[in-house]
């Protein structure tokens, strides 16, 4: 049954992929607007102040559309049950480190799940896991849609990694964990930066400052305020993958095999008596 184990838990239809792409572009803009915004538009202070709030309203809507579209086609009972249970496990990994920042060892499980169960599943799991854990810890806020999108990308990316087995696979996953958690941290920081750094420091967002100037300021902001959290988080997740990756991947593969996603059902039309002779 090798063929069955390669089936993915959540199939991305054409429509879902297109929507996911569109939502991701808007998502990138939502994270990166302070850098991407044109100097002329950025300089219009009143106008630039609207941007983050437009995105706060936009991202949940887009996430809902994408998740709804993915669910519509291929989220059967098995995928939903597995999604819910794994989201609970991720949330449990997140609980010891509550708040906006934290060690978040949940990425480790998210990456392993995305790897085994495919990128569609990884995307949905990232979003639901963040949502569930925020509900459990009572941490729902305007940052939640952004965290959901970030984690969804992280899970999606884990499903896109190249084929490999054994130690090579673990090495790839661990490297991905480091890169992805650093990126996730930087992205969320980028979102928080215009609010968090005020206007009167040398690494505050400078409306109309242009890409290079603001990138420079942002990198400093990121280095000084958050890398202290982000690097330990990246290391924790990588270490967990090295230490637990093999058995966890094994358990997930076994579950996905047993779940028989997308089962092959055949009906014999032969008369009952003849089938008994087989």
């Amino acid at each position: 049954m090798r063929a069955a184990s390669r089936r993915v838990a959540v199939r991305l239809t054409m429509r879902a992929s297109v929507l996911l792409g569109a939502a991701s572009i808007v998502g990138l803009a939502a994270f990166g607007w302070p850098l991407l915004i044109h100097a002329r538009a950025g300089a219009n202070v009143a106008h630039a102040a609207d941007a983050p709030w437009i995105f706060v309203a936009l991202i949940p809507l887009l996430l809902a559309i994408v998740l709804g579209e993915i669910a519509e086609g291929s989220l059967d009972a098995k995928a939903v049950a597995l999604l819910g249970i794994l989201a609970a496990c991720c949330a449990a990994l997140r609980v010891p480190s509550p708040g906006v920042a934290g060690l978040e060892p949940m990425f480790f499980l998210l990456i392993c799940s995305g790897r085994v169960l495919g990128r569609g599943f990884g995307f949905v799991l990232g979003a639901t896991a963040l949502f569930a854990s925020s509900l459990i810890t009572g941490g729902v806020g305007p940052w939640l849609p952004f965290q959901m999108l970030g984690a969804a990308w992280l899970g999606f990316g884990a499903g896109c990694l190249p084929r490999a087995i054994g130690r090579r696979e673990i090495a790839i996953l661990a490297a991905y964990a480091v890169v992805a958690s650093l990126l996730y941290g930087a992205l969320l920081n980028l979102w928080f930066w215009p609010f968090g750094a005020g206007t009167t420091t040398s690494f505050s967002y400078l409306p109309g400052g242009g890409l290079l100037e603001n990138l420079h300021r942002f990198v400093f902001f990121d280095l000084t305020t958050s890398l202290g959290f982000d690097i330990p988080r990246a290391v924790t997740n990588a270490v967990l993958i090295v230490a637990l990756g093999r058995p966890v991947l094994g358990a997930l593969r076994r579950a996905s095999r047993r779940a028989v996603f997308d089962p092959v059902v055949a009906f014999d039309d032969a008369a009952p008596t003849s089938s008994a002779d087989l």
Binding site: L75, A81, T128
Partner: peptide, 14 residues
């Protein structure tokens, strides 16, 4: 709805 069920399951199981 489907994603909501998954989150409900997560809240139940956590």
């Amino acid at each position: 709805y489907e994603a909501g069920v998954a989150v409900t399951v997560a809240l139940t199981y956590a």
